[in-house]
Amino acid sequence: MIEINNFSKAYGSTLAVNDLTFAVPSGQILGLIGRNGAGKTTTMRALSGIIPSGAGEFMVDGFSLSDAPLELKRRTAYVADDPRLFSDLSVEQHLKFQASVYGIQKPADEIRKLLELFELESKRHSAASTLSRGMRQKLAICCAYLQAPTALLLDEPMTGLDPHAIRVLKDTIVNRAAQGCAVIISSHLLAMVEDICSQILILDCGERRFWGSNEEFKQRFAQSENNDSNTLEAAFFSSLTELGQDLASTIHGSTGSADRHSQNIDSITQQ
């Protein structure tokens, strides 16, 4: 289970995420949706311990990032939108490195299975630096799967993947969730999110705008606009009107909100 409580993060004088709270129970898949710069990647990077979190608490399976960072990291796998691989290592060496660092016992079979599943067998001894964008993405996903995480964080995981790999990835995400893994997927591919996510979280300008089930989201927004098409995409575009009004009032209308933002930046900076 993933829990994020009152997370805020500032970059200089810019508040990237403001007081974000949500949870993803084991077996659930959460779709993280929002515009570019909404704070999606920041949230995932902070949860995986990459960037120091300004304020707030992160928990995975009851282990807190501040109190038991290694236990949390051992259970968490993060696949970045543009994975940074070790250029000197081959595909197989990457997986061996991952197996060693995460203490995976006898990983040979699992490595073989993953390489076959993502069609990386022929690239087994190829240097990571020579892989195409899609193959690097596949390798990063293999590395994440190898560590058998209980919290899986995927940032734009479909980028560069071929149709076969997209299908494999979708199936495997669902399977992992069925086995008890809590998954967060950040993506702009709303059809894919609708397909596999059970929960939706809409972020805008670092603020949580909606958190609930896929159906709730569709009910609330698609019906409010009398939209005939009952898809997540239609609901999302309908929701933009409401979110846009909220945003406008945050920036221009209410000074109270602006004050709240600057107070938050100050409190994060102090921490």
Binding site: R45, G49, I50, L70, E71, R74, T76, A80, R84, V101
Partner: peptide
Amino acid sequence: DVLKSLPV
């Protein structure tokens, strides 16, 4: 990013 996310 990778180094910081390792459980080490």
